[in-house]
């Protein structure tokens, strides 16, 4: 009886921490979806951009001794600016190029950003302090880390901001229009190219949050975001790569599944990344549009 209770409790704890990591994947997946909707390409550099932003936050906190909250906000603003600059400088020349070209361009950005971070901050693992206390609170008989709750809360706030931006502002409306109907929007006076740059900025800002949330859990180093990027891809594909809501739900599902795989399968920690691969391939084979996506139609 007692054993059963402890099994259930540990299961529940795994689910909660899975939801927390899922929230991190969800933020990065949302960033990927924002860019995918705008230009039909998966940004392979998204994780590296988030990693770079996290290093900026690290520098702001350790070198400039800024309080965490200020560094957090400042990093988001810098990431936004960085995203806009990257789009204007490196992606815009390739607007309208075939998918292969765009994939290679984002992979080139991946290499450059990764190398730059290594050049500036080195490859020694760094600890990135969490803003949340390491204590747990008891909720309904289950111990839940405040860290996990904090990550979930931060992600919810970010999502709320992004959704209200797209839902309630004219700029958000223009961006949605530019993504869905570029030709018609241009006729109506929407600067579609500029909207793309804003989209990259927004994605970089959202991605930066995921980087700052994941850094206290794994150590901060230039390669920290690669598995996260893979899980975010899995989340985006599972949710339907065109659907922001889907990417968030997909992130949570992937997070919980990975937590359970990591805990209950033998050698589970090593199998997390292959499991991400299995999720991606399985979704694409059996439900290519994901949970919330539309079926792709093509005019011949």
């Amino acid at each position: 009886m007692l054993l059963a209770a402890s099994v259930i409790q540990s299961f529940a704890q795994q689910v909660v921490s899975g939801v927390a990591s899922g929230a991190i994947y969800a933020s990065l997946a949302l960033a990927l979806v924002l860019i995918y909707r705008a230009m039909d390409v998966a940004n392979f550099a998204q994780g590296e951009m988030a990693m770079f932003a996290t290093f900026v936050a690290y520098t702001l906190i350790t070198q400039f001794h800024l309080p965490y909250l200020l560094a957090f906000v400042l990093t988001i603003l810098l990431a936004f600016a960085g995203g806009v600059i990257v789009e204007r400088a490196f992606v815009r020349p390739f607007e309208g190029a075939p998918v292969l070209t765009l994939v290679i361009v984002t992979l080139a950005l991946f290499s450059i950003v990764n190398g730059l971070a290594g050049l500036i901050w080195g490859y020694v693992f760094k600890t990135f302090d969490s803003p949340f206390p390491a204590r747990s609170v008891q909720v309904g008989g289950v111990f839940v880390g405040i860290q996990d709750l904090g990550v979930i809360a931060v992600t919810l706030v970010v999502l709320a901001v992004v959704f209200s931006f797209f839902r309630y502002t004219r700029l958000g409306l223009a961006m949605r229009a530019a993504a869905l109907y570029p030709e018609s929007s241009r006729l109506l006076g929407v600067r579609t190219s500029r909207m793309l740059a804003l989209g990259w900025g927004l994605a970089a800002a959202v991605g930066a949050v995921s980087g700052m949330m994941v850094a206290p859990i794994v150590f901060l180093d230039p390669n920290m975001m690669q598995p996260v990027l893979l899980f975010a891809f899995a989340a985006a594909v599972l949710g339907g790569i065109e659907s922001p809501v889907g990417s968030v739900i997909g992130g949570v599902i992937v997070g919980v599944l990975l937590a359970l795989v990591g805990t209950y399968l033998p050698g589970g920690q090593n199998l997390r990344i292959p499991f991400g691969l299995i999720v991606i391939v399985a979704v694409l084979l059996f439900r290519p549009a994901g949970l919330f996506g539309r079926r792709e139609m093509k005019r011949v």
Partner: peptide, 20 residues
């Protein structure tokens, strides 16, 4: 893009599988 995603995941999966 989907093929790129799936093969990207394949590339990342090799090392942990070999280690496992």
């Amino acid at each position: 893009i989907y093929l790129a995603l799936a093969t990207f995941a394949l590339a990342l999966a090799v090392t942990p599988v070999l280690n496992n």
